[in-house]
Design a protein around this nucleic acid. Structure first.
Lengths: 220, 220
DNA sequence: GAAAACAGAATTGTTGACGATTTTCGCGAC
DNA sequence: GTCGCGAAAATCGTCAACAATTCTGTTTTC
């Protein structure tokens, strides 16, 4: 079984939201909670800083980086064009097996949504994006998108709570999959960009109704 | 003034090409040549690994990462869409001062090229791209592109040696600047993508001075 | 003569302790 | 009451030494 390095463990904790933004990351504390030497924690923090998940100030320690709403929009814009590139390439080299996997995602997401399972639909959402990336075979785009996505998972749960957004999302996904399976590169890229720019717009403008904002912020 | 950290010094040496790809980076050696503690060198290597400039294998040390031709193409494709995003935003918020700076780049590049100064033209090329990024104000795109560019500077000198490429390049740059100064977002993005995908095509097909066959492929 | 086994060298990884810097907190002056 | 000031605590940064691992060259054995 995978010996979870201090890096992986810390990364997962931050991405998952177990550690809140701006929370201090004291090397000594982490070394005890993760049962690892301070040196190991230190290198993990350095790597995480380069990942953009952590900020370190000299002699002042590390904190998990808070990404502002404005920056989340920027990140989604970058993802939009990069995933556009990926699906373009996916459309170019799509085969029957790949198409089947994509269709499966769509079907399951639609079903989960009809049952009101927002969380499950969100998971399938991530799976769909991951599948598209894998089918693209574009290692560089994959690496960049993975890195960007890690910084904004916190926002996933906010956008999915915006009324009407899940329904629109599934329609947009269907359009992407349709274009990819048809081998239509231009349309695939366009559909992906539309989709992610819509999400960006939701983050930018779509202030969540009332107190749900704070609630979701604390939750994950 | 700026105490060049071990990280900056090593990074510059690798990016500049002073240290060849696949060259071993022994911590003890580096610590003496850079007059810094082994610990500092160690953290620098970790950061560089996360940057994608260095690979480290357990107990086997670090080497500067060699990027294959295929990967260089991928990186240029990623840059194409990201810089497309950047110039789109630059076109949105362009002003007189910014337009003047861009025109200056074009004029100087054209002049240098007429005098046969390929190296100078290449420098102005980098300056133009940097200026466009700065004018876009898109911090995220800037960060990503900077990181990608550091990995492929080695290829700059190969593409510029391909007959006909510098001339085409200046024309493509002019098209980009024209679209940006005109505030035409769609055309700016398209022109930038055409430009960088042409460079990618030159890297892919143009095995050094041998094949001039790179016709502009239908793009987007 | 070739392959396996072994010893020595080279290099990385880890640990613990110590120095440096920032932050915190108590205390006195105004 | 609060503002400044200094000492103590907390925390990071660095260093040297040691352990662990891989590499290299030599020797042994078949």
């Amino acid at each position: 079984m995978a010996v979870t390095s201090s890096y992986d463990a810390l990364r997962a904790a931050i991405v998952r939201g177990d550690i809140a933004p701006d929370a201090r990351l004291v090397e000594a504390d982490l070394s005890t909670t993760f049962a690892m030497s301070r040196g190991a924690v230190r290198t993990a923090l350095i790597r995480l800083e380069q990942d953009g998940l952590v900020v370190r100030e000299p002699h002042r320690g590390a904190r998990v980086r808070r990404v502002s709403d404005a920056e989340a929009v920027e990140i989604l814009q970058a993802r939009a064009v990069l995933e556009g590139l990926a699906v373009r390439q996916a459309a170019d080299r799509i085969d029957h097996a790949g198409a089947a996997r994509l269709q499966s995602c769509i079907a399951r997401q639609r079903e989960l949504l009809e049952n009101g399972d927002l969380l499950g639909a969100s998971e399938v959402n991530a799976e769909l994006h991951a599948t598209l990336l894998e089918l693209s075979g574009h290692a560089t785009a994959m690496r960049l998108i993975e890195s960007l996505n890690a910084q904004t998972v916190r926002y996933q749960y906010r956008t999915i709570l915006i009324p009407g957004r899940p329904g629109a999302s599934v329609a947009e996904h269907a359009a992407i999959v349709e274009a990819v399976t048809a081998g239509n590169e231009d349309e695939a890229e366009l559909a992906m960009r539309r989709h992610l720019l819509n999400v960006a717009e939701a983050v930018r403008g779509g202030r969540l109704p009332g107190g749900i904002d704070n609630a979701s912020r604390g939750v994950l």
